[in-house]
Design a protein around this nucleic acid. Structure first.
Lengths: 211, 211
DNA sequence: ATATTTTTTAATCATTTGATTAAATTATTT
DNA sequence: AAATAATTTAATCAAATGATTAAAAAATAT
């Protein structure tokens, strides 16, 4: 591996990166069980044995992709929810906007994560780590304060979280049905999602007043 | 098959029913690709060959389960949305309530359908049939009328549908994460869902006023 | 009671699929 | 340039898995 001493190759140029990128695409699209290592090899344009040469096994490769996906998926929440400098409202706005941007680029992440969790709850839930990233976030403090000040109606914050994440994520999870029912093309769908960047924070504000 | 001439056996008593029920459980929980016919046979307490004797192949059995699941999943929408006797508000209320009841009983249906659609969009989307069940429903007529009367703000009805279905379905799809983050037990979760039967219609009303 | 049909089982097959091996090729070092 | 190390390939293995077969058992009909 002396290669690493040289200048770092552009993304996807190294064999290892080619395999990882191919694996990400296939795993995200079909899930672990429906993915054949041969499909990954073909997508990457490499010999099947190379996959095992670099990553030892399908499972090890999968673990790497899953870990990165979980990281992407969480990072947007954690960062946005723990910024102590911003107001509750602006936190929501950036979270919604960043999240939708991520999902426009990698629309298969949520369904990928959710179905793998279904197949293997214990293993993956533990990898989510830090149970408290949400419950102990600065966001929750602000939320509870807003409740005390009467700005937000008294309600289980989990309802609020479900609505927040649900309104962002669900369209991407249900996209095929939605696009079918609404006769949406790629751009139509993305435009709707762009609209939701603005709308969801407003909706959440309205919801938080409902008794 | 002279058996059929006799009294219809109670559910699950016939071998065919035993296999179908086992298949439903395993397919819903693990999806098509991750399901082994041997797992179904074991769950049903029968010999593997019997599965093929009754259903010919894994795929044929799967198709039956999928069709029934799609039917359950759609029926609640179709019926509720096309009742000409009820107001817009009461339609929402019954739809939300019926839907949550269904999902409390069969919580794996949404993720099952959504991930199989991901793996095989064309085949399954076509089975959804009637593109127009929603767009040409009596509900949409009422909705558009309410918009004209200024009772609902002018907005793409798809946003409304996404929020409606999303608020109902997403908690079930994200249940493992949610239960982990919120430290919820089975009953805690169901109680939250019961609350949402009342809350979601109120939230939707509030949302429909937002400019 | 016997014959026939239906249901069930154990054993086996054929294909798919994740993984390995040994050899060939390419790159790097001396 | 020769030697060594890293990368890549074709061929192959072994286990898993969907499916079939032939025979046994149970149910039904004659």
């Amino acid at each position: 591996m002396k290669k690493q001493l040289k200048i770092k190759p552009v993304a996807d140029s190294s064999t290892e990166e080619k395999i990882k990128n191919a694996a990400r695409i296939i795993f995200h699209k079909k899930g672990y069980a429906a993915t054949r290592t041969r499909d990954i090899a073909e997508e990457a344009g490499i010999n099947l044995a190379l996959l095992n040469y670099y990553f030892r096994s399908k499972e090890k490769l999968f673990d790497i992709i899953m870990l990165e996906s979980l990281h992407d998926f969480r990072q947007h929440i954690i960062v946005a929810l723990n910024d102590e400098k911003t107001s509750l409202e602006s936190k929501i706005e950036t979270l919604v906007s960043n999240y939708i941007d991520l999902l426009i680029n990698q629309p298969d992440i949520p369904l990928f994560i959710l179905s793998e969790i279904r197949n293997n709850p214990q293993a993956l839930i533990s990898k989510l780590n830090q149970k408290e990233i949400i419950t102990k976030s600065y966001f929750i403090k602000q939320f509870q304060q807003a409740v005390q000040e009467g700005k937000i109606v008294h309600i289980n914050p989990l309802h609020y979280i479900m609505n927040l994440i649900g309104m962002i994520v669900f369209p991407f999870v249900g996209r095929p049905i939605l696009s079918y029912v609404g006769q949406l093309k790629q751009d139509d769908f993305n435009n709707l999602m762009e609209q939701r960047k603005i709308l969801i924070p407003k909706w959440l504000k309205a919801i938080s007043k409902v008794k």
